[in-house]
Simulated scan of single mutants.
Amino acid sequence: MINLRRLVHTSCRLERGRTAFYNVHQKVTDPAKQDPDYFEKKARELPLDQNYIDALSKLYYEKIGSERDLGLKAADNLILEKTEFGLPRIEKSKIRAKYEDLDVLSNAPESVKKVFSVEMATRRELSQEWKESLIKSVRQHSLDGSSLEMKIAWLTALIRHWSLLVNDIGQETKKKPTWLTHRIWLVINERRKALRILRERNEAAFENTIAALKISYHVPKQPAHVKTRKAWAEAQLKLRVENEKEKRLEELHERYDKQVEDHKRETEEKRKALNNELDKLAEDMRRIDVIEGKAFETVGKYEPSLISSLTETVIHSNLFYHPPPTMSEK
C-alpha cells in the first residue's frame, strides 16, 4: 500500500496558509494626515542620502495604508474624534421633532415631556434629530426639501452618524462592520458629487454650506502617474530634484547678488581712496610750485563779486561825489 504521507506533505503552515495575513490598511491617528498633500510634503522633506529610496517606499506604504481610513474620515475631520463626530449638540430636554407641533405637550407635566424628549429617543429618532439640525443650518427656506444644500446636509448627518456607529461597534468587537463602512463609502461619493454640482452652480452657496457643515472639501485631481510604488517614488524623486535645482539656483543667485554688492562697495571704497590720494598729490605739487615761485599762495578767501562791487562804488564816488558846501565857503 502506498504511503500517502510521502506523496503529500502536510504541516501546520499549509493549514494556516502559505504566508501570514497582512492587512495593508492602517488606523490613522494623526490629524495632520487629513491634508491631501500630506505625504507629498513629507516626501519633499526627506533627506537626500543613501536611504532616500527606502524612506520613500516606507512613506508610500504608509500612504496606501492610510487611504481607507482617511477616505472615511478626512472630509469630516473625524480623525481622533471620539465624542461628537461632528454631530450637533442637542439638548436632552428638547421635545423630539415629530412631537414639536403638538399643543398638548405645551401644558403637559415634566414627566410626560421627558417621555417625548430627546433623552428618551431611540437611535433612529436621535439620528433624525441630527439630520433636522444640520438641514436647518443650510436650507433655503422652511419648506425646502429638495435643494442641493438640504441633500448635502442630510448625507453629512448620515455619514457622521454611521461613523459614530462604527466606532461604537469597534469598541465591542475587533472586526469592522464592512456592511456599514461600504454604505459610508457610497454616501461619501454621493455627497462629493452633490458638492461638485453645487460648486459649479452657485459658488456662494457652496462656500456657506461647507462652512456651516464644517466639511473639508478639496477639488479632486487626477494623479500624474500610475498608482504604483515605483511610479509614485519616481514622481516624488523628480519633483524633489526640480525643487532642489530651483533651491540651489536661488541660492546661487542670492550669492551672486551679494558678491556683486560686495564688489561694488569695495570698488567705491578704492575709488574714494584713490581720489583722496590724488587730491593729496595735487596739494603737494601746488606747495612745491609756491616754494619755487611759480605760484602764489592765496591767504584768505577770494570774493570776486564783492571786490568788483567795491571797486565800482569807489570809482563812482571819485567821479560823481561832491561834498556838501559849508558856511565858510563863499
Rank of each mutant, 00 (worst) to 15 (best):
M1K: 14
N3L: 08
N3C: 12
L4M: 13
R6K: 14
R6L: 09
L7R: 14
T10V: 12
T10G: 09
H25I: 01
K27A: 12
Q34V: 13
Q34P: 03
K42C: 07
R44D: 00
L46I: 01
N51A: 10
Y52C: 01
D54P: 00
D54L: 06
A55V: 04
L59E: 01
I64F: 02
R68I: 07
L72M: 06
K73P: 01
K73V: 04
A74G: 06
D76G: 06
L78K: 03
L78D: 01
L78P: 02
L78H: 02
E84W: 04
E84P: 00
I90N: 05
I95N: 03
I95G: 01
I95H: 04
A97T: 09
E100K: 11
D101A: 07
S106D: 00
N107I: 07
A108M: 02
K114G: 02
K114A: 07
V118R: 01
V118T: 11
M120Y: 15
A121E: 03
T122W: 05
E125Y: 07
L126C: 04
Q128K: 13
E132C: 07
E132K: 08
S133P: 00
S137D: 00
S137V: 03
R139E: 01
R139V: 07
Q140I: 12
M150K: 14
H161Y: 14
W162M: 05
L165V: 10
G170S: 08
Q171G: 15
E172C: 03
T173S: 05
K174L: 13
K174Y: 13
T178G: 07
L180F: 15
L180P: 00
T181N: 11
T181R: 13
I184T: 04
I188T: 12
E190L: 12
A194E: 06
I197H: 02
R199G: 01
E200N: 10
N202M: 05
N202C: 09
F206K: 05
L213Q: 08
L213A: 01
L213M: 10
K214A: 13
I215Q: 05
I215M: 11
V219A: 14
P220S: 14
K230D: 06
K230N: 07
A231F: 02
A235L: 04
Q236L: 09
L237T: 10
R240L: 00
E242N: 08
E244C: 12
R248M: 09
L249E: 12
L249K: 09
E250C: 08
E250Q: 08
E251G: 03
E251Y: 01
L252Q: 11
E254I: 11
K258A: 05
Q259T: 12
V260F: 15
H263T: 09
K270A: 14
K272V: 11
L281T: 06
I288M: 09
D289P: 02
V290G: 04
I291W: 14
I291P: 00
E292Q: 12
K294A: 06
F296M: 03
T298M: 08
K301M: 10
K301T: 08
Y302F: 06
S305P: 02
L306E: 04
L306K: 12
L306P: 00
L306R: 10
S309W: 14
E312K: 13
E312Q: 07
T313S: 09
T313W: 05
S317H: 13
N318W: 15
Y321V: 00
Y321L: 04
H322W: 05
P323T: 12
P325C: 03
M327A: 05
E329Y: 14
K330D: 00
